Amino acid sequence: MDPKNDSPVAVSPYERLQALGINLPPAPPPIANFVTHVREGNILYLSGQGPREPDGHLYAGKVGGDVDIDSAYDHARLTGINLLAVMHDALGDLGKVKRIVKILGMVNAVPDFAEHPRVINGCSDLMMDVFGAAGSHARSAVGFGSLPGNITVEIEAIVALHE
Rank of each mutant, 00 (worst) to 15 (best):
H116N: 02
D112P: 01
Y73M: 08
G95E: 05
L78N: 08
L58P: 00
L104E: 01
A72Y: 01
E163M: 03
V38M: 13
K62E: 04
V67A: 04
M87D: 05
T152G: 00
S7M: 15
E40L: 12
A32K: 13
S124Y: 05
N23P: 01
M106Q: 07
I103L: 13
V107N: 03
P28W: 02
A138H: 15
E154Y: 06
S124R: 12
P26I: 01
A10C: 12
M1I: 15
P29C: 13
E163A: 00
A160W: 03
L20C: 08
F34N: 14
P8G: 15
N108Y: 03
N33K: 15
I103F: 08
V38Y: 08
A85G: 02
D89K: 05
H57I: 05
G143P: 02
V86N: 06
Q49D: 04
N150S: 08
A114K: 05
K102I: 01
G80F: 01
I22G: 04
M1K: 11
V110G: 07
L20Q: 12
A60P: 00
P117F: 04
A141N: 07
E15G: 05
K4R: 15
V63N: 02
A160L: 10
C123L: 11
G122H: 04
E15H: 09
P25T: 09
A85T: 04
G132I: 12
D68Q: 06
V159G: 06
L17H: 12
P29Q: 14
V9D: 13
G95H: 01
V38T: 15
R77G: 07
E154M: 13
D6K: 15
R99Q: 11
L44E: 05
A138N: 14
P54S: 08
H137T: 06
K98N: 07
G135V: 00
S136F: 08
T79R: 09
R39F: 08
L44K: 09
K62F: 00
G65A: 00
A60I: 02
N23V: 15
G145R: 09
R77M: 08
H88M: 04
N121P: 06
I69G: 05
L24F: 07
Y14P: 01
A72V: 11
R52K: 12
L78D: 06
I158D: 11
P25H: 05
S7R: 15
G122L: 08
E115H: 00
V142Q: 09
A27Q: 14
V142T: 11
L84K: 02
E156N: 04
G65C: 03
R118G: 03
N42Y: 08
A157W: 14
N5S: 06
N150E: 12
L126C: 08
A160Q: 07
A60C: 03
G145C: 03
D66Q: 10
P148F: 02
I31D: 15
R118D: 01
V119R: 00
P51C: 04
H57R: 13
K4L: 15
F113L: 08
E15Q: 15
I103E: 13
L104N: 00
L24D: 07
S146Q: 13
A157K: 09
K4T: 15
P13M: 12
H116Y: 09
I158H: 12
R139V: 10
N150M: 07
Q18E: 14
P29T: 14
S47P: 10
N82Y: 01
G80Y: 02
K96Q: 12
A27Y: 05
Y59T: 10
M106L: 12
L78P: 05
E163G: 09
M106V: 02
I151R: 00
V101E: 14
T152Q: 01
P51D: 07
H116C: 03
